[in-house]
């Protein structure tokens, strides 16, 4: 059933990682995702993997969901690895038929794979340890300087909040509409592609109409509660940086330093 889908997977917990200020988490994750492309040698790459590994351990998230999140990218990894192995020029390792596998090619494939995997694991760690609302809130605060460029940061964040709030409601509604149309003999399971798409109309039309109705009512409710955009708005939950946030920032700084030093002193492999 649709209701079994868990959205914005969040594993509630009380670990150090969970308790980090969401703004810091957001910035550090973003920084990590950029930095993972910096190292060109095994020391830097190993440091990046270890840094991430320690973070996952500290979060006390079971390893299984983290690994499961990586599964969908495996075909992509295999594809890019093969391309890299065959097309990067350099010292040939072996060759057969018309292709030659080079030493540089293997390393490039390896580096790219590790980078993509780390990038996704880091992103999942952020969503696994931060509730969607907190994340939206952090995003609004981190991006608030963009207001100077006339980007409506508050409105975007409010839309995300509302979307997250209504996803479960709409999933439930879809279930109900499907049951009701099935009771009128709607056949959703058989037929060719065209027939199946057509069979969705009795579900999609009521769903759209009800979403508009809900949106209209919600807008009225928000107006009743004096909503008038982001200006002059305060927040109940204040975010304050504390000890562990500075420690996390320090760790990140040390990690950056290590990457730069290793890039200078350790011979590049790609």
């Amino acid at each position: 059933m649709l209701a079994d889908i868990t959205f914005g997977q969040f594993f509630p917990g009380n670990s150090v990682i969970h308790r980090l200020d969401p703004r810091i988490k957001l910035i550090l994750t973003f920084a990590y995702i950029l930095l993972i492309f910096l190292p060109d040698n095994w020391v830097g790459l190993a440091a990046a993997v270890v840094f991430l590994g320690i973070s996952v351990m500290l979060s006390r998230i079971p390893l299984k969901p983290v690994l499961k999140g990586l599964k969908p990218v495996i075909p992509l990894l295999i594809f890019t690895s093969l391309i890299n192995m065959f097309y990067v020029d350099g010292t040939p390792l072996f060759s057969f038929w018309i292709v030659t596998v080079t030493r540089e090619g293997v390393f490039t494939a390896l580096f790219i794979s590790v980078r993509i995997l780390s990038l996704i694991a880091a992103g999942s760690l952020l969503t696994y340890t931060t509730s969607p609302t907190t994340l939206t809130d952090a995003l609004e605060r981190v991006l608030s300087p963009l207001k100077l460029l006339h980007i409506s940061v508050h409105e975007i964040a409010m839309m995300m909040t509302i979307a997250l709030r209504f996803i479960p409601t709409l999933i439930e509604e879809t279930d109900k509409i499907m049951a009701a149309q099935k009771a009128r003999g709607a056949d959703l399971e058989s037929g060719n592609v065209l027939q199946r798409v057509r069979a969705l109309i009795p579900i999609l039309v009521p769903l759209f109409i009800s979403s508009f109705r809900r949106a209209y009512e919600l807008a009225t409710a928000m107006e009743c509660r004096c909503y008038h955009g982001g200006d002059g708005r305060t927040r109940m939950k204040q975010l304050h940086l504390c000890g562990r946030d500075y420690v996390a920032l320090g760790c990140m700084a040390a990690f950056v330093a290590l990457l730069i030093v290793s890039n200078i002193y350790v011979p590049a492999m790609i």
Binding site: K176, I177, A180, A183, R184, G185, A186, P202, V205, P206
Partner: peptide, 24 residues
């Protein structure tokens, strides 16, 4: 079902009432 009016979807009332018989 409860609140069955939220399941109406056709262009006309006639077509909507005819949906079940048509499926038959």
């Amino acid at each position: 079902f409860q609140y069955p009016e939220y399941q109406l979807f056709e262009e006309t009332v006639y077509k909507d009432i005819a949906f079940g018989p048509q499926n038959m």
